[in-house]
């Protein structure tokens, strides 16, 4: 089982790397085409601009598959860490929204939401894992 576990982990990492590579190709490919004005019509620019999300969906289903194949304790740790990330992201983004209204905090890109949530997920995983060690 230890070997199987490692293989599963390795195969997950390999698939994640492949999806991330596809994400990078689609991201830089689409941005390159749009920046060089090689693509004109708006619908095509929309489609190209969203194309990296194909890989993002791949990663989403990969992570969901990993959750489903995990054992009950691992599922619990994942669920608790995601719950922490969910709440922390809500608190942080709402706090910033209020600061924009009340204290003139500058406009920020929506791209910041994921780094906030990802970081909170990591912190949540550390906290949840420690509970069962």
């Amino acid at each position: 089982m230890a070997d199987m576990e490692m293989l599963t982990g390795r195969s997950y990492a390999t698939r994640l790397m492949l999806w991330l590579a596809l994400y990078a190709v689609l991201l830089f490919g689409s941005l390159g085409l749009i920046d060089r004005k090689l693509v004109g019509p708006l619908p095509l620019r929309v489609a190209l601009g969203l194309s990296p999300m194909i890989a993002a969906f791949g990663i989403l289903f990969l992570v969901m598959g990993r959750y489903r194949s995990a054992d009950e304790l691992q599922q619990r740790i994942m669920a608790e860490s995601l719950m922490f990330a969910f709440g922390a992201t809500a608190i942080i983004t709402f706090s910033y929204g209020f600061l924009q209204r009340t204290a003139g905090a500058p406009e920020l890109s929506y791209f910041w939401v994921w780094p906030v949530m990802g970081s909170a997920w990591f912190v949540g995983a550390v906290i949840a894992r420690r509970r069962f060690e």
Binding site: M1, A2, E5, A70, D71, E72, L73, Q74, F132, E133
Partner: peptide
């Protein structure tokens, strides 16, 4: 299950 689960 994982070894971590057995340990827990």
């Amino acid at each position: 299950v994982s070894r971590q689960t057995v340990n827990a």
